[in-house]
Amino acid sequence: MNRQILMGLGAIALIAVPFIGVPPYWLHIMIVILIWSFAYTGWSVMGRFGLVSLGHGAFMGIGAYGTALLWNHAGMSPWLGIPIAMALAGLFALLVGYPCFKYRIVGHYFALVTLALSEIVRQVIVATRDHTGGSLGYTPEPHGGEGYSIVALQFPEKTHFYLIALGVWMVGLIIWRAVDRSMSRYALEAISEDEDASASVGVEVTKEKLKITVLSAVMTAFAGAMYCQYQMFVSPDTVSGIGISLQIVFAVVAGGIYTRFGPTVGAIITIVLAEVLRINIAELEGLFGFKPAGLDNTIYGIMLVLFIIFLPKGVLGSIQGRLFGRSA
């Protein structure tokens, strides 16, 4: 009961954030964290069952570019465009997932096949530069007076977007919990332990894996669309390709792959870390008189390696493990 009261209070506090005069910069950081948390939660619903996809950059890219392209070229409102882009991502997941699971592509092989996928999507975006702007990036055309439009889902006011992102993030947590309490969870855990044995006791291995993969892909595509609508700019490097795919997996593992708030904690850690490093390095520039470009990512890279080696259960997973003595 205490837990529920605590959660309710937390939710009210989060809703109140934009109304108590939080500076726009902090609101911006929180929106970015919420959107990425949703994407990371989307990855973790399949990642926790040992389905390590390095291809989620592909789904993110389909969501972001699909929505923006439909709006700019076909004049289709994101209200319609986002579901279509999500369906496309789901279809793509199905198309690739089915043969993968049918032929038992697992472990290193699964990771590398999915890695190829995110690379395909990135290369297609770059190659179709006449329509997508290539590696320079792409902007959904602003709609209506002063960029505010319900039809185009464009909100220059950060408060609006914050509340939307907060709602989306909460839905993500609800989905996570629904998966956690579903029968599929037991099936998928059995599959990740021993595929043959689960198949022999009647678990439909391919079907269960496909269900969770499509769910995960659709969630990630939605996050991509959200990101694009918020930033009003996407580029292949920010929403697709290996970099993003790795970033997704890193954040989830850093936060904790087996806990509901793990992906969120991962998003907070990685984004705050990146921001702090970026800002401090801008200050160092004043100190040294030159810009130490890359120092932030250097430290970021080192910290990620240290995380993997010393906290393989993630921050939240390790803390919970210590508090409650869980061995899982």
């Binding site: 290193h108 790795l246 997996v249 890193f250 990512n297 970021y300 890279g301 990620l304 390696v305 993997i308």
Partner: peptide, 10 residues
């Protein structure tokens, strides 16, 4: 994969 991926970033 992630450890060597972190090295890639680094």
């Amino acid at each position: 994969l992630l450890a060597t991926g972190g090295v890639l970033f680094f």
